[in-house]
């Protein structure tokens, strides 16, 4: 799915990540953890082509990201769902339109897709809020809307950067359950988080692997935390 070969990334002078080799297997569930500023977000951005590695190769679905033109990256984003901690929307469009946005920009909007949209809205529990504008949503609702938008194209991979950072424990459990369900449907899930209790909670539901960033390297943490 996603393969990093000897990847390094440096901002300005300092190296943030160096010599990282990593393969995300299809259908698996990963956590990416590490202290703040260790490079979790940077690693995720490398995984969806928002950043180019300063050394090494990133292969997405077997294709080298460095060789992709801007339209190639756009096409790739349709196969990778991304959820940010502070997710952004088009504030002048309704929640439903925002969730359907990936369909519209890829020209796949249709009546059948509308059915999927309603189902997806029900799944994340936002049916009642379909016509609301994004600024009117609570933190938890925003995260669920972002998750719905990330998966409406039925991507193979879902990347989530601190998806539970702005919500309370109960809501983070709810988001986690949605992500676990996605994984059971066969999607590869990678969640960056520094919340160890979230990881523990997940381990009771799914076989999750934990990647830890320390000293500019990524290590596969043991089964125990």
């Amino acid at each position: 799915m996603i393969e990093l070969k000897n990847v390094a990334y440096s901002y300005g002078g300092g190296a943030l990540l160096s010599d990282i080799s990593l393969t995300l297997a299809a259908g698996s569930f990963y956590f990416l953890t590490g202290p703040s500023g260790a490079g979790k977000t940077t690693l995720l951005k490398l995984c969806y082509g928002a950043l180019q590695p300063t050394a090494g190769d990133v292969l997405l679905f077997g294709e080298d990201v460095a060789g992709l033109a801007r339209d190639g990256i756009a096409a790739l984003r349709r196969r990778v769902g991304v959820v940010h901690q502070d997710c952004q929307f088009l504030d002048h469009l309704s929640v439903a339109e925002n969730i359907a946005l990936p369909l519209d920009v890829s020209g796949r909007a249709s009546a059948a897709a509308d059915g999927d949209l309603n189902e997806l809205m029900a799944w994340v529990g936002l049916t009642q809020r379909a016509e609301a504008l994004p600024p009117e949503l609570s933190g938890g609702e925003r995260q669920r809307a972002a998750l719905a938008r990330a998966v409406i194209m039925s991507p193979d991979v879902v990347l989530a950067d601190e998806p539970t950072g702005n919500v309370d424990w109960e809501m983070s459990q709810r988001l986690l359950r949605l992500l676990v369900e996605l994984n059971r449907m066969g999607k590869t899930v990678l969640i960056a988080t520094h919340d160890l209790s979230l990881i523990r909670a997940a381990k009771t539901q799914v076989q999750a692997r934990v990647l830890r960033i320390s000293n500019r390297q990524v290590q596969l943490a043991g089964a125990d935390l």
């Binding site: 801007r70 339209d71 756009a74 096409a75 790739l76 984003r77 349709r78 991304v82 952004q88 929307f89 088009l90 946005l101 990936p102 920009v105 890829s106 938008r149 194209m153």
Partner: peptide, 9 residues
């Protein structure tokens, strides 16, 4: 946002 959800330039 549009770039994130896969819109082309």
């Amino acid at each position: 946002v549009l770039r994130l959800v896969g819109a082309t330039d």
